[in-house]
């Protein structure tokens, strides 16, 4: 995945069973963001893998004032890349479950 300057990691072990997963997002390279992002630190949240889209979460983060509107696409892409990896991994490790 392209380096967006925004890091998204699992905030918990993934057992492949839960429909939701805890993720943690933080800015590694603020220069890659268009808007001035506050020094937010790490933002942890729960993501419903089946029901939600990364764009929903990215927009909520902008609404909550963590990021500037102009960065919503970068935030959404960063989350999307991590979610895709989680789903790819789940299908490989627990094929029977998926």
């Amino acid at each position: 995945a392209e380096d967006t300057g925004v890091r998204v990691e699992l905030a918990e072990e993934d057992d492949g069973r839960k429909s939701s997963i805890a993720l943690r997002l933080w800015v590694e390279d603020a220069k890659k963001l268009k808007g001035k992002s506050k020094d937010n630190g790490a933002i942890e949240f729960t993501f419903e893998l089946e029901k939600e889209t990364p764009d929903d979460v990215a927009q909520e983060m902008v609404d909550a004032g963590f990021f500037h509107e102009s960065d919503v696409k970068i935030i959404a892409k960063s989350i999307r890349d991590r979610v895709a990896l989680i789903q790819w991994r789940r299908e490989r490790i627990w094929p029977m479950l998926h």
């Binding site: 590694e28 790490a42 949240f45 909520e60 909550a64």
Partner: peptide, 27 residues
């Protein structure tokens, strides 16, 4: 503890904490 919680109007909770030093990329 230096955690703060922000709840979005749609109901999602965001827990904000300092990024561990080890995870910060050298600037």
């Amino acid at each position: 503890n230096s955690f703060t919680e922000v709840v979005h109007s749609a109901g999602r909770r965001f827990i904000v904490s300092p990024v561990p030093e080890s995870r910060l990329r050298e600037q």
